[in-house]
Design a protein around this nucleic acid. Structure first.
Lengths: 345, 345
DNA sequence: TGCGCTTACGTTACCGGTAACGCTCAATTT
DNA sequence: AAATTGAGCGTTACCGGTAACGTAAGCGCA
């Protein structure tokens, strides 16, 4: 079964274990052992097999391997609400970095905040029998809760740490992220130490889901007063912040402190105030969340909560893989945040 | 806190075709036909099989399907240089949207601009026998060129349209993206119609690769003069633009027009100029590339080249899938760009 | 010399699907 | 009435690996 001389180096994906074995004069099983780095072969055999595999350009077939032994699937399914903004795309970068470094491959899905989309995606992703699943923590429909709870593969819940939000994840599911209530509380606390007066908050709502509710609650708790709120039916964006600030401030001129869902919006608001001659932080103090790069080059550096997004992804991947491979790992891991005291508040 | 052996539970998805078939009183093959939507069964049989599959919560095993028929792999491997910034993450979002809508799954890899990383990733991704491959067009090492050229699955080259850049992609490979030379030329042309004087350009270099070279060439061609250039060994960022503008302007005070690798950097430069009291566009005109959202809320709207990033991804996925399924498709497709005449130039 | 233990393999039986082909039987054609 | 057809379904043989088990040769040791 040797490959004709003329075919060398072509059609890589046609080279199978059987061909390697034939060329090397051993059984398929022996070739398999050598190529997997299992033991049970002599140095001579190993060298011969590796030589042939290298010469023929053998690429192992993970599909067959995965079918053959249920345990050897190295696919990790990752569902993210969105990718277009820095937050989740950097988390994904962290996830991918770590996964790739230990030989795993991510299957990625963008499922928004819609239960139905998520449900469908989960089903098609599970058809690949991933060895692990990554989702973001959030309230879920009963169907999705049931599906996630019925799984035997490890599930990692990203970003949201709180277990008591009704996210339908069983207590065996892993969590890596931050405590959003605490992040909001910290910011509210800091602002209340420097300013008095009415607080305002601008966030967004997507598919009937209000994003960042825990942070808002924490903020109000820390600030010691409830905030005037405005929820835009939109994605978070610079423009949403610009527009939101305009709306909220004109409706509530007494607002002294403005908190935002994230830095994109806070920067937009900053631009709005700058355009309108509203003094920051003299007239209105502004705070965001996330610690995006843009904050650091603004005319006034943004007061925000810095989150190590790459780190969240890496740690999530690491813990998930540990669980997959049977290494003990903490159920919940808090990455923590840093309050960035900028010039806008 | 750690739960070592919780992996041991019952497998939810061990419902196999055989069980469905048994329950429904038909052969595996018939159940397979029904579940795949192939033909060759009666309405009665179909209803029975579907009922059983629904009741037992059958999730098809794509791994087995892919092994069984070489053609049925619905995995698409996607290699991106980075994910943290808006550009590639939005392209990925577009890719994923389209792929998911037609039942395909993306396997994602972040390979930077390093040939070795890309080579390793390609090999591990190919082990999943994807039905298509997406990479970004750029100069490649001989090994990577050879690998890509030896493949029998369709390859989609993203972003860079030019065929004559030494990217090692065979002429059968698909391309979707924009003409970067033309985009630069257009901008240079526009700026030369409004300003005279020395031009400057700030870009970045990563892993010995100068990014956006074609745009720079086009820009110089359109502007009618070569530019003072500065290449930072860094990722593109607001801060890089801030710093780059500072460096280049102090070294060449005569610069009248500043062009940047992308909008992130242009915005950073804008901030620098604003901080230093340099009038825009009175003293220096600034132009970026990409059309990021941030540009539209700046105190002065950014002059830039708008690119529909989501569209690039969607179209790339669409063309690739067409090729995979044998539908005729243009080899090269230009998404086009729009010159955005803002207030900074 | 015979017994057990290793080492280094080979054999067999799957994993869960699908392609290819074959069979049956009722409806239609000749 | 015999021949032809095709819808509907079953059988067989894989796909390319891996787990589990079997076995022959070599070695130490009683």
């Amino acid at each position: 079964m040797s490959i004709p001389e003329s075919n060398r180096g072509q059609k890589k994906s046609n080279v199978s274990l059987a061909e390697i074995a034939g060329e090397a004069g051993v059984s398929r099983m022996t070739a398999s052992r050598v190529l997997r780095g299992a033991d049970g072969y002599s140095v001579k055999t190993r060298d011969k097999v590796l030589e042939v595999a290298g010469r023929l350009g053998y690429v192992p077939n993970r599909i067959a391997a995965a079918l053959g032994s249920e345990a050897s699937n190295s696919l990790v399914a990752i569902a993210l609400p969105t990718l277009g903004r820095e937050l989740y795309s950097q988390i994904l970068e962290g996830l991918e970095n770590k996964l790739a470094s230990v030989g795993y491959q991510p299957i990625v899905g963008v499922v928004g905040y819609d239960d139905d989309t998520e449900f469908k995606w989960l089903n098609s992703a599970l058809a690949w029998r991933p060895c692990g699943l990554v989702v973001t923590g959030r309230p879920r429909s009963a169907a999705n809760q049931a599906l996630l709870s019925s799984l035997t593969v490890p599930v990692m819940q990203l970003w949201n740490l709180k277990a008591d939000t009704d996210d339908g994840l069983a207590s065996t599911h892993l969590r890596v992220g931050i405590d959003h209530f605490e992040a909001g509380r910290q910011m509210g606390d800091y602002l209340s130490s420097r300013y008095r007066g009415k607080a305002g908050y601008v966030g967004v709502r997507q598919a009937d889901t209000v994003l960042g509710q825990d942070r808002l609650s924490g903020f109000e708790s820390g600030y010691g007063a409830s905030a005037e709120t405005l929820f835009l039916n939109d994605r978070s964006s610079f423009y949403a912040g610009y527009y939101g600030a305009e709306q909220l401030l004109s409706a509530n001129p007494a607002i002294r402190v403005l908190y935002f869902l994230d830095d994109n919006m806070a920067v937009g608001a900053l631009m709005f105030c700058q355009a309108k001659g509203i003094k920051i932080p003299g007239d209105v103090a502004i705070a965001g969340f996330g610690g995006l790069d843009i904050g650091s080059v603004m005319p006034a550096t943004l007061t925000t909560t810095r989150v190590r997004r790459l780190r969240v992804g890496k740690q999530a991947a690491e813990n998930l893989i540990k669980r997959v491979t049977g290494v003990p790992v903490p159920l919940v891991q808090d990455i923590g945040v840093d309050l960035e005291k900028g010039e806008t508040a």
